[in-house]
Design a protein around this nucleic acid. Structure first.
Length: 573
DNA sequence: ACCCTATGTATCC
DNA sequence: TGGATACCCTAGGG
């Protein structure tokens, strides 16, 4: 264990005057009366060097002399201990005169670091123009391209009209049904069933694949059989809705039956098992081209693999589509043009490809980014726009894939930092929005909601960068990096840590009586109850072969948050 | 109210 | 090229 870094609260111990005789082991504290610099010995050590301060001897000393230890004999006359908080060091830059961290529900940045939101130096998140200029922290970056004639006409004559013609989007802003801790590790992936509205498929870091009927809250299944570590992507079979394709960091792509959870391996990049990290291959990106009956999958070394859906076997040779040795984390087939797909990854690139010429340099365009690109998606209706999420805390929008793609049409500053303990954030289009402007993405930095620090899920109009809505629930205090909008309904599914939950719009009726809002909010009742897994199993139908989770912790419990339909109010607005 | 730990990416040498 | 190391708003468990 490393020595805990500067335990910085210096304690000034004042000896009671009458008891000068009893202090056998407290000479040090006696000194402290005179000069306030002389505090406990552990503090003065902490001061000297923080850089290499984890010497073992020091550690021992700290353990040996806890600061406030007083001989047990005299409990009445303890020395008075005063903490001098001013001596605390900033945990970020180690300076003495300030501190970074939460003050209540508000996080105070270290002023010596670049802004945590926009990454520019000279200000902090609290004063970042991208936070305070608009309502809730998201503003459009200025267009980097100069306006051409078409753009000019569009902006001048059509933009305002479009805003008027389009009804405001319906935002699922209230948690409904339940919050279910379906997984035993953090959720990495969500996918709605293509025909059954209530079925949500989920994947997690451990390789589990979950099936959840969120209307019948207890209808849930978890398969351990499909993957052994991180589920990278899940897609439904284009013609058989009882089958899913999934890929994972175990280096496999499988077609699995949802009834049995039995995988039919199409790709296994580690046929010889584990031989160390240098040879282990992982698959993160995957998508299906239904027209061509091909599954595309991308690995952590820059290569693309293909599977023929009809035979469930590999076709062609692996093709290098990104920098060799770099992880390709995202693949997306164009929803309109079956020849196109886009890839993105750790080489800071998103790349557009032509399926027909993959062998002979089929790359159509390179979209350079300053950092790792978490995701790149074509717009869902026309396939004509691209939305990327980059680890430089910016969303990038490319309005037309046939125009110059060297620069994005817009950059939108948005807090979605990389953190090794979180699933990567990925902005996704609303598949129902005909204007292809609405996107959803979780937010990393918290905001203060009535004294609670919460991490909202943001709905962003990517044509302007405006924040359309931010949704929170006070029962969900964790960051929500995984979000999926329903293809047909006004429903949002979210994955936060190990939990899944469903959002629906608040009734319009309830929006009318604003006067009651505050009062109702106070009255809001949330029932949280825990149901043993076997009880749920009795309600469910058959207990499946891989359903039981032998080794692991908490998975027996299903944490449900039931909402009483009438009374409940969302925390937001 | 701490403390510990899992472990991805960038950066440095 | 590769190992060592640092790392701001984690989440959950002890």
């Amino acid at each position: 264990m490393a020595a805990r870094p500067q335990r910085a609260v210096r304690k000034l111990v004042v000896q009671r005057d009458s008891e000068s005789e009893e202090s056998s082991d407290e000479e040090i504290e006696n000194d402290a009366i005179e000069e306030e610099e002389a505090v406990n010995e552990e503090e003065e050590e902490d001061y000297g060097d923080d850089a290499d301060g984890d010497g073992e001897g020091e550690q021992e000393d700290n353990a040996a002399t806890p600061s406030s230890s007083v001989p047990n004999g005299k409990k009445k006359k303890e020395p008075i201990t005063i903490s001098l908080k001013t001596a605390k060091l900033c945990k970020v830059c180690k300076a003495k005169d300030h501190q970074a961290g939460f003050v209540g529900s508000v996080y105070v940045d270290c002023p010596n670091k670049p802004c945590f939101l926009c990454k520019q130096p000279g200000h902090t998140t609290a004063t970042c123009p991208h936070r305070i200029a608009s309502e809730h922290g998201v503003t459009p970056a200025p267009r980097r391209q100069s306006l051409g004639m078409i753009d000019f006409v569009h902006e001048r004559q059509l933009r305002s009209q479009i805003q008027k013609m389009m009804p405001p989007p319906v935002v699922p802003n209230r948690v409904d049904c339940a919050i279910i801790k379906l997984h035993s590790r953090r959720v990495t992936n969500l996918e709605f069933h293509p025909t059954k509205d209530n079925i949500l498929i989920s994947g997690d870091k451990k390789g589990q694949v979950g099936i959840w009927d969120y209307e019948k809250v207890y209808e849930k299944t978890v398969y351990n059989s499909i993957h052994t570590c991180i589920v990278g992507s899940i897609r439904f079979h284009p013609t058989n809705t009882e089958m899913i394709y999934s890929c994972g960091a175990d280096g496999t792509v499988s077609c699995s039956d949802l009834e049995t959870g039995l995988p039919n391996r199409a790709i296994d990049l580690n046929p010889d098992g584990w031989n160390g990290p240098s040879t282990w291959r992982m698959i993160y990106g995957m998508d299906i081209n239904g027209t061509r009956n091909v599954v595309l999958a991308s690995d952590n070394t820059g290569f693309l693999h293909q599977v023929d859906i009809r035979t469930n076997s590999r076709i062609g040779k692996p093709l290098l589509i990104h920098k060799k040795g770099s992880k390709v984390v995202g693949l997306h087939c164009n929803p309109v043009d079956p020849d196109l797909f886009i890839s993105c990854g750790n080489d800071h690139m998103a790349r557009i490809w032509d399926m027909r010429f993959l062998d002979a340099e089929g790359q159509l365009a390179e979209l350079p980014h300053p950092r790792v690109v978490n995701s790149a998606f074509f717009s869902p209706k026309s396939g004509n726009k691209i939305l990327t999420t980059c680890q430089d805390n910016r969303l990038r929008v490319y309005d037309c894939i046939f125009s110059n793609l060297a620069e994005p049409s817009r950059e939108i500053v948005h807090s979605h930092d990389f953190n090794r303990y979180l699933t990567c954030f990925r902005a996704e289009w609303d598949p129902k929005d005909p204007s292809e402007n609405l996107a959803v993405i979780g937010r990393y930095i918290s905001d203060d909601f009535n004294g609670i620090a919460l991490h909202p899920i943001d709905f962003i109009d990517v044509s302007t960068g405006q924040l359309v809505a931010e949704v929170v629930d006070k029962n969900i205090t964790t960051i929500t990096p995984v979000n999926k909008l329903h293809p047909r309904l006004d429903v949002l599914a979210s994955g936060s840590s190990r939990s899944l939950y469903i959002w629906r719009p608040k009734d319009e009726m309830e929006d009318d009586d604003k006067g009651l809002e505050a009062e109702e909010e106070i009255k809001r009742k949330v029932t949280i109850f825990t149901v043993p897994d076997h009880a749920a199993a009795k309600k469910g139908k058959d207990k499946r072969k891989f359903d039981e989770d032998e080794d692991d912790d908490d998975d027996d419990d299903m944490l449900c948050q039931k909402s009483s339909k009438k009374k409940e109010r969302s925390v937001m607005d």
